[in-house]
């Protein structure tokens, strides 16, 4: 028999299966916490940090990523406080600065309230969310991709530098990559500080009518759970 735990997310009582993450619990109840590196079928790695929440414990709050946080009985979670919004906006801004040519990252950044990016662009075209690597190792079990190097030299690479025979050529690494969809307004240039205009207008509508989903087109790999509730 499945055991359930009860926790409070944004003052709402939420039931979750024991062992599920806080992010899972929130989305199952229709509370949308922004997330990027999270893929339902894969292990959570807490790479993008967009899904940060406040955990209230004895009157003190701790900020942590909700995808790697196990839901426990009596937990009190706040996902939409002023402090969290500010931090999340900053994280989204850094992600855009790291990889400005991604529609998914821009969309999420706009949803987190980013209007302009204050950081210099790095144009890495990779935010190291590890979606491709985790899919390759955990789901397709090909182990063709992996993170190589450390610190600022960490990057995704094939084993020994080129595609091996054991790559199954399933193509899901690109399918799941947030960089595979280019922004509708074209790629961003340094100093322009412009985010995809289409998404911005969508947010504006969502602001006017509460409960309206932005329905950001985040590519097929990015099926937003929220869309099923609209």
């Amino acid at each position: 028999m499945q055991q359930y735990v009860t926790l409070k997310i944004d003052d709402a009582r939420v039931q979750a299966i024991k062992g599920a993450s806080v992010l899972d619990a929130a989305m199952a109840s229709g509370i949308c916490i922004p997330h990027l590196c999270y893929v339902p079928v894969l292990k959570d790695s807490g790479a993008c940090r967009l899904c940060i929440v406040e955990v209230v414990n004895d009157g003190r709050t701790k900020i942590t990523a909700s995808c790697t946080l196990n839901a426990e009985d009596g937990m009190v979670i706040r996902s939409n406080t002023e402090r969290i919004r500010k931090l999340r906006k900053n994280i989204a801004e850094l992600l855009v600065a790291q990889a400005p040519n991604s529609r998914a990252v821009q969309d999420i950044a706009v949803r987190c309230g980013v209007k302009e990016v204050r950081y210099p662009f790095r144009n890495d075209n990779c935010i190291q969310c590890g979606r491709c690597v985790r899919y390759c190792t955990e789901y397709s079990k090909a182990n063709a991709l992996g993170f190589v190097g450390r610190g600022k030299n960490r990057h995704v690479e094939f084993a020994l530098g080129f595609r091996r025979d054991f790559c199954k050529k399933c193509g899901f690494c690109t399918e799941y990559c947030p960089m595979s969809v280019t922004p509708c307004g074209g790629s961003m240039k340094s100093g322009e500080g412009r985010l995809c205009g289409n998404c911005e207008s969508q947010t504006a509508t969502a602001d006017k009518f509460t409960g309206v989903c932005v329905r950001c087109e985040l590519g097929r790999g990015f099926g937003c759970v929220r869309q099923t509730y609209v």
């Binding site: 190792t137 182990n143 063709a144 992996g146 993170f147 190589v148 190097g149 084993a159 020994l160 091996r164």
Partner: peptide, 25 residues
């Protein structure tokens, strides 16, 4: 050498990617 890493991966039952990752780290 690459051949040695492939041999190690095969004999230890570790994916080659893992061997390469550790060697680079």
């Amino acid at each position: 050498p690459e051949e040695a890493m492939s041999a190690v991966a095969q004999e230890l039952g570790v994916p080659l990617m893992e061997v390469y990752r550790v060697a680079c780290f």
